[in-house]
């Protein structure tokens, strides 16, 4: 189990525990983290589970698949170097800190 800190635009934050085999999206939705809309339930079809992973944590992430790469082209808030779809973040190697983008839709 790893711990992920998700920081909102207003500076508030939530720490969610991600079980092995669980996606960060699922853990965040179950914990009721605002701003993780996750409309498609984790199929890399909606791009509404976008997070900005902070630079010093990028090594803990799984490699990006083609679908995720594709869907990051249509995220509502600008795409940045740490942009990931949280539904595709399964098997984090370490604790991670990320920011929730201002909008998902």
């Amino acid at each position: 189990m790893v711990k992920v800190t998700l920081v909102q635009a207003d500076g508030s934050s939530a720490v969610v525990s991600v079980e092995p085999g669980q996606s960060l999206m699922r853990a965040a939705v179950l914990a009721g983290v605002p701003g993780i809309v996750a409309e498609c339930g984790g199929q890399a079809m909606c791009a509404t589970c976008h997070v900005y992973v902070r630079e010093d944590h990028l090594d803990a992430l799984p490699v990006m698949g083609d679908e995720e790469e594709e869907m990051l082209e249509v995220v509502a808030s600008e795409r940045r170097p740490g942009s990931r779809l949280s539904c595709q973040l399964v098997g984090l190697a370490d604790d991670v800190v990320g920011d929730v983008p201002p909008s998902q839709i």
Partner: peptide, 17 residues
């Protein structure tokens, strides 16, 4: 408020959205 449920939500979200 841009969110709506016209395509559903969750795992059955419209495939043809």
């Amino acid at each position: 408020e841009r969110r709506h449920l016209g395509f559903g939500a969750g795992t059955h979200l419209c495939a043809g959205k």
